[in-house]
């Protein structure tokens, strides 16, 4: 039995990093996560300390990124706000992935459940994301955990749809029939045969939802319906800085840049993941 060939396969990471822009995005994301996690412990960064005499100080030696209308350090607030934004993004991505996998597997594997669940998914996707999020936060009340819950509900249908469609394909493959012939349980078939083979599109979509959720959180906070104003987020910082836009544009510039670069990096990472997981594209890279 000759002829067994082991193709020298490059790892997923190697394929992704061969694109410079994706490598850059990943480096940026690691940097901001690193700052958000470690900086508050290493430096004295009090986001609430006020200094009324040094209100609206432009960026300089005293305040690297300036101070706001209450004389609070913009850099400190930016770092603390980053923790909240990243927490919300990651929380929503994880929660929406779990709920979407659960609903999508049920809809895709059990024909009886497909009709009702698919209609529910369609109905939810018919609402504009931000409108649904505003309504849900209005009902639940503004706190970090409630914003995560509300945005998870908003983004679950996106994952559920992908999981359902992929499950429909895999369900009919001979190896699933082989598993039934062997007497494997439905839970084993779903976890080992279905979920394992549809994980790539789920991971890619979860990365995009991470980005959407950070953007949506900023939008909610900017509109004043996000987390309560005492908790700094990039959205609330822009909302507060809006009144001083002509005199102190740096107040919205830095949180704006933070949002833009984080979301852009996540999107690029998602694109890179999608291409690297697609064997047809990955070979050309």
């Amino acid at each position: 039995m000759a002829g067994i060939t082991t193709a020298p396969e490059r790892s997923l990471l190697a394929v992704m990093l061969s694109r410079r822009i994706v490598a850059l995005a990943l480096a940026f994301l690691i940097m901001i996560v690193g700052i958000a996690v470690f900086a508050p412990a290493l430096f004295s960064l009090d986001p609430a300390a006020m200094s009324v005499r040094q209100r609206l100080t432009p960026p300089g030696a005293a305040y690297w990124l300036g101070s706001d209308a209450f004389g609070r350090d913009v850099l400190s607030r930016l770092v603390h706000a980053g923790r909240v934004s990243l927490l919300i993004g990651a929380g929503v991505a994880l929660a929406a992935a779990f709920a979407g996998i659960f609903i999508g597997l049920l809809a895709g594997f059990y024909r009886r459940l497909d009709g009702p669940l698919s209609r529910l998914i369609d109905a939810m996707m018919a609402f504009p994301d931000i409108l649904l999020a505003i309504s849900l936060v209005a009902i639940l009340g503004g706190s970090v955990i409630n914003v995560i819950i509300a945005l998870s509900i908003v983004y679950t249908p996106r994952i559920a749809r992908i999981v359902r469609a992929s499950t429909l394909v895999v369900r009919e493959l001979p190896y699933v029939e082989a598993a039934r012939a062997l007497g494997s349980s439905t839970s084993y078939i779903l976890s080992r045969h279905v979920l394992l083979n549809i994980s790539s599109p789920i991971i890619v979509q979860a990365t995009f939802i991470f980005a959407y959720a950070m953007l949506a959180e900023a939008g909610l906070s900017f509109l004043g319906v996000g987390v309560d104003p005492a908790t700094p987020t990039w959205g609330t910082m822009i909302n507060e800085g809006r009144q001083f836009i002509d005199r102190s544009p740096y107040l919205i510039l830095f949180p704006g840049l933070a949002i833009s670069f984080s979301v852009l990096s996540l999107q690029l990472l998602g694109d890179g993941l999608r291409d690297a997981l697609d064997p047809k594209i990955a070979r050309q890279m």
Binding site: Y175, A181, L182, G183, R192, L196, N197
Partner: peptide, 22 residues
């Protein structure tokens, strides 16, 4: 399910009948 131990099937398609991730 218990009876399936005693009866098995071999498929036509040697590619699609094996889970590529296992």
């Amino acid at each position: 399910q218990a009876m399936r131990r005693r009866m098995q099937i071999i498929f036509q398609d040697p590619v699609a009948s094996l889970n590529p991730r296992l």
